[in-house]
């Protein structure tokens, strides 16, 4: 298993085996489901077009709250306003990233070649998936070893290893994108 690499002509490539590819498809599906905006029957159609969601509330789910944090920590009213004017478009952007990843995967074999336009979506998807999983397993800067040593029957065991792999993938992609010093 390797991370992302660049070809001589600068194309970004990821080689995966069948299991890893299946895992990426499944993760992108889950991210799609997770970030999809809730349908609003009462929504003003014009407001919906410009991404305004007057029914948005602070999310109960910690992973959602991490992906869409309060912009004004000391001003709940302004925070809610901000959420109503931004969250829906942010959700739609994240959904578009995950869908692009699914498209790339569906037309690739075990060698995945990213078009230049696909790179931001892959980067965004990897980060969103890590934020969601990392929040679920309650990762901190100190508990990596503890999570890595969990027994296999602990539900967080598998999630941690997926998280760790996504971290490796994301790091390899970022290193390709950062200009050389």
């Amino acid at each position: 298993m390797g991370g992302f690499s660049k070809t001589i002509t600068g194309r970004v490539v990821l080689r995966v085996d069948e299991v890893e590819k299946g895992l990426l498809v499944s993760l992108a599906d889950q991210v799609c489901e997770f970030v999809s905006p809730e349908p609003r029957e009462s929504a003003d159609p014009l407001a919906a077009i410009v991404g305004i969601d007057m029914e948005a509330e602070f999310p109960d789910d910690p992973a959602m709250a991490r992906l869409f944090p309060d912009a004004y920590p000391d001003d709940p009213e302004a925070a809610l306003d901000f959420r109503r004017f931004t969250q829906r478009s942010l959700q739609e952007n994240k959904l578009a990233h995950a869908r692009t990843v699914l498209q790339t995967l569906s037309k690739s074999g075990e060698k995945i070649t990213l078009g230049a336009g696909d790179v931001p979506s892959w980067l965004g998807f990897l980060n969103d998936a890590r934020l969601a999983i990392g929040t679920r397993i309650e990762i901190t800067e100190e508990n990596h070893e503890e999570l890595a040593d969990l027994p296999e029957d602990d539900p967080r065991h598998g999630m941690f290893h997926v998280y760790d792999w996504l971290t490796y993938l994301q790091e390899s992609l970022v290193q390709l994108l950062l200009p050389q010093k």
């Binding site: 991490r66 992906l67 869409f68 944090p69 309060d70 912009a71 004004y72 920590p73 000391d74 901000f82 931004t86 942010l90 952007n93 994240k94 965004g124 980060n127 969103d128 934020l131």
Partner: peptide, 18 residues
């Protein structure tokens, strides 16, 4: 700053304004 914070949230960074 609201535009910057929304952009940071888009990238997944934890940003606030004041």
């Amino acid at each position: 700053m609201e535009r910057d914070v929304a952009a940071m949230h888009g990238y997944g960074l934890w940003a606030t304004l004041m």
